[in-house]
């Protein structure tokens, strides 16, 4: 697999071209804005939380394929989940992305298990090999974290 194909996996390109959960939610849904001041990417995450569950999530904004695909994949991964489950995915995802550019050792059963549990999100693991793009992948997640804190 070439470097580019490793970064831009088919799932990523699919979510970039056809982003899921695009749009806005009216109040009382919460609205949280995220910015990447270095590259100009902007994202708004709308959250509807009822009884400790994300019952709906919508995202608007613009950015590169990695930031857009990551936000779309995230919306699918957290929709309908309890806040506890969402926090767990968040922490697993952030761990996957902050391996300081190292490739995840796939021979380690613990790593394999984490990636398996992340499902489609594991496609973004290739980004960790491109340190300057990690912030693209984590923008949506940091915005979601902030939104959950405010909720």
């Amino acid at each position: 697999m070439s470097n580019l194909e490793e970064l831009y996996k088919e799932i990523i390109l699919d979510h970039y071209r056809t982003p899921r959960n695009r749009g806005e939610l009216a109040p009382p849904a919460s609205k949280t804005e995220g910015f990447n001041p270095l590259c100009g990417d902007e994202l708004t995450v709308y959250l509807e939380v009822t009884d400790g569950k994300i019952v709906d999530i919508k995202i608007t904004g613009h950015g590169c394929s990695i930031s857009q695909a990551s936000s779309s994949l995230m919306s699918v991964a957290v929709k309908g989940k309890t806040l506890e489950e969402v926090r767990e995915v968040l922490s697993k995802f952030k761990n996957m992305m902050t391996l300081e550019g190292d490739v995840v050792d796939l021979n380690d059963p613990a790593n394999r298990e984490v990636l398996r549990s992340l499902g489609e999100l594991a496609a973004l693991q290739g980004v960790s090999k491109f340190p300057v793009r990690i912030k693209c992948a984590t923008l949506a997640w940091n915005t979601l974290s902030q939104g959950l804190e405010e909720n």
Binding site: S2, N3, L4, L7, Y8, C39, G63, C64, S65, I66, Q68, F130, R133, C136
Partner: peptide, 12 residues
Amino acid sequence: VHPHDIAQVLDE
């Protein structure tokens, strides 16, 4: 195509 993605492909 976003400029970041352009720059990434060009870096290749």
